[in-house]
């Protein structure tokens, strides 16, 4: 029998890019930050990350297999990313049972209730994180002291974050070297600016993300806090400290750029990023919480469908 010729519309070739390639690219970009967290928070960072990743993947598998009865999608790597990002937003001395609850909320409520990858409105890791922050404020706001490969987990000595200190005017703020390297108290993945920027550069080179969102978030926060600092330096900290402390870089580079929950077009991305920057600064300067990146991203996630619908690029060839 002669073989049937295949007919199909053009194009007949494909770049070979896939969801997996993109997701594993993001994971590679997260490696430097993970190494830094291992150095400063040691055993605790390892335990928290492993538990978070493992439970995220497991919950995705169990829910898809037994509750939704559909093909599982754990191999595409998105659950792993959610696990890592959730862990990166937690203090390294968080008890295992709380992490598991966080993972369940992140995957179960943040992702799969909406229909899984591609359909969720909010960044799943942030949904998990904010849930934990509100439910377990005591455990979620004590931060272990950074060391050098400390072998402590639940028994780590703790203190307040930089933002906490500048918000409430106490303690000594770490010097700039520590801020850049990440030798300070904070969530385990958010501390090192250098490592996060390395990841950012990697993702840019591999064309995994576009630069608009991170750059515009950082720019907005810098300008906003800079102006406030210029008006009243005694009350408001310098913008550089704002850029380098807290979850801003982690949020700007890895969380706000989550494909599914960020806008598609350049214009939309810029509005979204500026929105995140403003909300973050407002919460940091005047809010009850010292840190506001998570809330800012979640709020702007909710605006994303609107931006996708209304912000369209100008028609080709028509200039204003």
């Amino acid at each position: 029998m002669e073989t049937k010729l295949i007919i199909s519309p053009s194009p007949h070739i494909h770049s070979g890019d896939s969801i997996e390639k993109k997701m594993y690219g993001v994971l590679i970009a997260l490696i430097p930050a993970f190494i830094v967290s291992l150095v400063f928070f040691g055993l605790g960072a390892l335990v928290v990350t492993l538990v978070s990743v493992f439970s995220c993947v497991l919950f995705e598998y169990l829910i898809q297999r037994f509750l939704l009865k559909e093909k599982t999608s754990i191999s595409d790597g998105s659950a792993v990313i959610t696990g890592v990002l959730l862990a990166f937003n937690l203090p390294s001395n968080l008890p295992i049972w709380i992490i598991i609850i966080g993972a369940l909320v992140a995957i179960g409520i943040g992702k799969l209730t909406f229909g899984g990858l591609g359909r969720n409105i909010f960044n799943p890791a942030l949904v998990g994180r904010v849930f934990l922050l509100i439910s377990f404020p005591a455990q979620m706001t004590v931060w272990p002291e950074p060391g050098f490969f400390p072998m402590t987990y639940l028994d780590a000595t703790t203190g307040a974050t930089t933002l906490n200190m500048i918000g409430n005017h106490f303690g000594t703020i770490p010097d700039y070297t520590s801020l850049l390297l990440g030798k300070m108290r904070g969530s385990l993945g958010e501390v090192s600016a250098v490592a996060l920027l390395l990841g950012f550069i990697f993702m840019l080179l591999r064309k995994i993300i576009q630069w608009y969102i991170p750059v515009f978030i950082l720019l907005t926060v810098f300008l906003f806090t800079g102006i406030m600092n210029w008006i009243n330096p005694a009350e408001y900290a310098s913008p550089v400290i704002h850029l380098l402390s807290g979850g801003l870089l982690l949020g700007a580079v890895f969380m706000a750029t989550d494909y599914v929950t960020s806008p598609v077009t350049k214009g939309g991305m810029i509005i979204y990023a500026v929105g995140i920057g403003i909300i973050t600064s407002v919460i940091r300067l005047w809010g009850a919480y010292p840190e506001g990146v998570s809330f800012a991203i979640l709020i702007m996630n909710a605006v994303t469908p609107l931006l996708n619908n209304y912000v369209k690029p100008e028609r080709y060839g028509i200039r204003k």
Partner: peptide, 21 residues
Amino acid sequence: RINKYDGEKTCFIASGLYGGE
């Protein structure tokens, strides 16, 4: 069937380019 159609499987799209399989 003399051909195999490998595009998006809706009649609307298939009929735009091809007469069928």
